[in-house]
Design a protein around this nucleic acid. Sequence first.
DNA 1: GCGAATGCTACTTTTTCGGTAGCATCATGA
DNA 2: TCATGATGCTACCGAAAAAGTAGCATTCGC
Lengths: 115, 115
Amino acid sequence: MAKIPMPGEPVRGSRSGSPIMALFDLLGRRWSMGVLWTLSEQGPLTFRALQNACETISPNVLNARLKELGEAGFVAHEAGGYRVTELGDEIYQALLPLSSASKVWARTLKENLDV
Amino acid sequence: MAKIPMPGEPVRGSRSGSPIMALFDLLGRRWSMGVLWTLSEQGPLTFRALQNACETISPNVLNARLKELGEAGFVAHEAGGYRVTELGDEIYQALLPLSSASKVWARTLKENLDV
DNA sequence: GCGAATGCTACTTTTTCGGTAGCATCATGA
DNA sequence: TCATGATGCTACCGAAAAAGTAGCATTCGC
């Protein structure tokens, strides 16, 4: 079983396991947010389809992330493929503002090059 | 120099470098969001103070993250210590909803244990 | 000039990730 | 019925990242 950070348990950034730090610990792994994002936008997807949608992820890592996200209750594997749960959608919704922020970032970088 | 993902460049999850995937690539590294979060809430902080606030981060990783976040334009090092920039604050604001979501997550996990 | 604080770097061990190959299972269908 | 293809992985190995600890060089305030 994948050992995943949980609120209330010691995690990176908080020995007392504050929820936000536990979430950062979980999402702050390679591909974690990318997988959740892709699955939210394009799911449900089969393992192979998800692997394809992520473009360059290796099956090992994809499997590891799916187990972790599954154990956290963010994704589920049913007939038809992997899908985000209601709770997973909650996280996805919370990630949406990052998308706008990322565009501000991209624009800022671009402007700095132009100047 | 730390090599960081940039929108427009190939990144994990997007060969064409979509901003959100570039941001996920950058923030999806251990401690990345934790450092930005801590600095936003408690900054400005000296290197040592930041290291302390993060509780268990090693100086190597802290230094690496600071360089990356600095190169991305999210944090700056001035007299008085490290601080988030205006752009960094933009990202921090976008992370705020994750805090509420993490609490929903914690509550859900707790309920499932009780049941 | 001395001690404390600051901002690291060096080094070693452990963990994680990347990249490729391939296997077991199941449904189709000629 | 026995290939054919899709699915969901696991195995293996080398490379990269992170953990954990020690300690050094440079201010800064006496």
